[in-house]
């Protein structure tokens, strides 16, 4: 089953065509890594997919329901209620974590399920404790974000996304703001999620990680998908000149 289907997504800022024509679909349980040089449009693509940016044209459907439809080359968004419902199907983990600084770890994770999804408080809290354990932050429930390291904060952010029980999670360069030595603790959590068959779309610069974890690698450049396929094909044996140049630089 396709969890996400995007076709002919176009987006420009003024005269700058950031996304020229992107089509992509993601199946349940699939881990997709998006690679590409900076300025290639990866982040804008993620922001359009998570509806933080509006697309100019193209269509997008979550779990078979349209969030955006293309009408005569113009993107038309669904009504508020539908969008609110569809937003519930995915989570997003930011490069800069964006935790709520005035909330404790526990409250960061529990608040949205309780006050947005209106779920039972005790149940959410029990689940949150499990998630905290899962991301390796046992005992930090009452800490505030400012008392945690970057890697710990990012793991809280992952737990926060998971607490909403999404069908898929987007990751926007989840390790770029971290020191190299603590990148591993975050990647470990991602690998664990992949093993549990969590559907994930990850924008990353970690080539090794992408090769080991991703089912599919998508290489973007200049607002287009240049190449996509199995990681061993794309990373070890790229057919496109630009992909090769990029991978060369990353090594």
């Amino acid at each position: 089953m396709k969890l996400l289907e995007i076709s002919h997504l176009k987006k420009s800022f003024g005269d700058l065509n950031v996304l020229r024509d992107i089509s992509m679909s993601v199946s349940e349980g699939e881990v997709v890594a998006i690679l590409g040089p900076s300025g290639s449009g990866k982040s804008t693509f993620l922001r359009c997919a998570t509806m933080l940016e509006t697309m100019d044209s193209g269509s997008m459907a979550y779990v078979g329901d349209y969030a955006v439809q293309d009408v005569d080359g113009k993107a038309v968004y669904a009504d508020k209620a539908t969008l609110h419902k569809l937003k519930n199907t995915f989570g997003l983990v930011f490069q800069n974590f964006n935790l709520f600084p005035h909330y404790s770890v526990m409250k960061n994770i529990c608040d949205a399920p309780i006050s947005v999804q209106k779920r039972n408080k005790a149940e959410v809290e029990a689940e949150a404790k499990e998630l905290i354990k899962k991301v390796g932050l046992e005992g930090k429930e009452d800490y505030y974000p400012c008392q945690l390291s970057g890697g710990q904060q990012q793991r809280v952010a992952i737990a926060r996304a998971l607490a909403m029980n999404p069908k898929m999670i987007f990751f926007d360069e989840p390790t770029s703001a971290l020191d190299p030595e603590i990148t591993a603790e975050v990647l470990k959590v991602l690998r664990q999620l992949a093993e549990e068959k969590m559907t994930m779309i990850i924008v990353t610069h970690e080539i090794d990680f992408a090769r080991k974890v991703a089912d599919r690698v998508v290489f973007m450049d200049q607002g287009l998908i240049v190449e996509e396929g199995r990681p061993e094909d794309i990373i070890d044996n790229p057919s496109n000149e630009r992909t090769r140049a990029f991978l060369q630089k990353m090594k």
Binding site: T50, M51, L52, H84, K87, N88, G91, L92, F94, N96, N98, L99, F100, D111, A112, S115, V116, Q117, R160, M164
Partner: peptide
């Protein structure tokens, strides 16, 4: 980023303002 995090988590405008 605070607004974006709240948006992705599904907070309404009112909730975003008063809670975050």
């Amino acid at each position: 980023g605070q607004y974006e995090a709240a948006d992705v988590l599904g907070y309404s405008k009112g909730q975003t303002f008063w809670k975050i």
